[in-house]
Amino acid sequence: MAEIQTPPPAPQTPAGPQKIDRRTFLSWTGVAWVSFAAATTGALSIVLRYLFPNVVFEPPTSFKAGFPDDYEIGVVDERWKEKFGVWLIRTAEGMFALSTICTHLGCTPNWLSTESKFKCPCHGSGFYKSGINFEGPAPRPLERYRIMRAEDGQILIDKSKKFQQEKGEWNNPEAFLTL
């Protein structure tokens, strides 16, 4: 570092065959350090990008869940809980898909049908059937997933799109399948 800051060699020193004037030197220095910094940053960002694979071997994010008539009104359906992490709840008006991930720390709450609530075993967060939180440390309601009709009339649930109640997203037509 020290050498960098030193001004060009004093005139009495027998320097290289030809002298480089101060301005040229500074511009070379500038180019050198800027491109070096850019290259280093670039290399680092390549490493960071490397951490994100283009293909992930994880279950598909959307799935078909059969026809609405397969579901009973007023029941929290747990058939997709294990495979896709989704509760399907059918109400009188329609259906919605609730994420099984606790908004506190990501544990899987249990549906306690007798108490009619979701209770997270990790830190005791409680949620109503609608997904609204009412006890425990969970900071916000459970998320809902995009739910719609596929071309063949089946229910299609797309987990890549989430709707959060506190953002008013539950009013989105894709957050609730009106039947």
């Binding site: 050198a32 070096f36 290259a39």
Partner: peptide, 16 residues
């Protein structure tokens, strides 16, 4: 010459 080194430094950094 230190000054000349920087020329090489700049060129090689650009290549990198």
């Amino acid at each position: 010459s230190i000054a000349k080194t920087f020329m090489w430094f700049a060129i090689i950094s650009l290549l990198l």
